[in-house]
């Protein structure tokens, strides 16, 4: 089920939290929302879940509009809000049963679904505890279980791994990836590595606007535009190599890394690649080329570049 956001604008008083954004998420896609705090990620997600009504624009989940058929939208969405609100006094099983009934599941099917959720989310040993007695990681799993219990086509997860330890983060990511194959998933985060690890597509939002949209690779390519290589040339005089590299037409900048190590950082001119030229140079001169690796721009850098003004 696709999610289509059309010209969504959401104002709080005079401030525009989300400013005329449009995008589409396709079935089987995991979209990562990135952005600094207060960029409009949560507002956009709340609008998709019908919790906030847009001031302008519309959102469609499958064929249903959040304005005209909010109940149909709600039925198809599994939602894990920020900070994972739960009823701490409720036993976990009772809570899942409550959510299942609220989602309109009836009869034998309720027990079946609860059983499935406990298995999928790994809650086996904690079945009879109250939610408040569970560790944070298990509470997060309960949050995911309640979002998944009615087998929704669309999953909206607002910072699903916040407050978890590294092992739990990996587990939750694996779970999201597994689920994401058949469903449409939007998740938000400000941990870049997480988005890169879980999402097929990344959207960076800043001040209520989309500033970048694409796969992690697209974003890198888009942002750098020029190639940076780390080269090691041995059995040669550093100065000579340095001069020779500068002589290659496609190379814009050469930076020796340390003296006598043979390492160089080479930046090509825009839209050009110097890899072949460097190889040929080494062959001609009889130098030993022992390393040549492209240096990727870190997602962090792209993020900072796009969101700092």
């Amino acid at each position: 089920m696709d999610i289509v956001v059309e010209n969504l604008t959401k104002r709080f008083g005079a401030q525009k939290a989300v400013d005329n954004i449009s995008f589409r998420v396709r079935t089987g896609e995991v979209l990562g929302f990135l952005g600094p705090n207060g960029a409009g990620k949560t507002t956009t997600m709340k609008a998709i879940t019908t919790y906030l009504t847009p001031n302008e624009g519309n959102i469609f989940v499958g064929p249903h509009s959040v304005r005209e058929q909010p109940d149909e939208v709600k039925k198809n969405i599994g939602y894990l809000p920020e900070n994972n609100p739960l009823y701490p006094d409720m036993p976990m099983i009772d809570y899942l049963r409550f959510v299942a009934k609220m989602q309109g599941i009836t009869g034998e099917k309720i027990r079946e679904r609860i059983h499935d959720m406990i298995r999928i989310c790994g809650l086996e040993g904690e079945k009879h505890k109250k939610i408040g007695e569970l560790s944070k990681g298990y509470q997060q799993r309960v949050g995911l279980a309640q979002a998944l219990i009615h087998d929704p086509q669309v999953l909206i997860l607002d910072e699903p791994t916040s407050g978890l330890d590294p092992n739990q983060i990996v587990e939750i990511r694996e779970l999201i990836k597994k689920i994401g194959r058949e469903k449409t998933v939007i998740l938000s985060s400000h941990i870049l590595a997480e988005v890169e690890a879980t999402c097929d597509r990344i959207m960076i939002i800043n001040r209520g606007r989309i500033v970048a949209d694409g796969t992690a690779r697209d974003l890198r390519r888009h942002s750098e535009g020029r190639e940076v290589l780390r080269v090691r040339i041995e059995d040669a005089d550093s100065n000579e190599v340095f001069q020779a590299l500068r002589g290659i037409a496609a190379i814009g900048l050469v930076d020796p890394l340390g003296t006598g190590t043979g390492f160089f950082e080479v930046q090509s001119k825009p839209e050009l690649s110097a890899r072949r030229d460097i190889f040929r140079l080494c062959v001609d001169k009889g130098w030993m080329l022992t390393e040549m690796s492209p240096i990727e721009t870190k997602l962090e850098d792209i993020f900072r570049e796009l969101t700092m003004n």
Partner: peptide
Amino acid sequence: GTLELLLTKP
């Protein structure tokens, strides 16, 4: 914040 969860159920 559980109200948000409740109101986003059908």
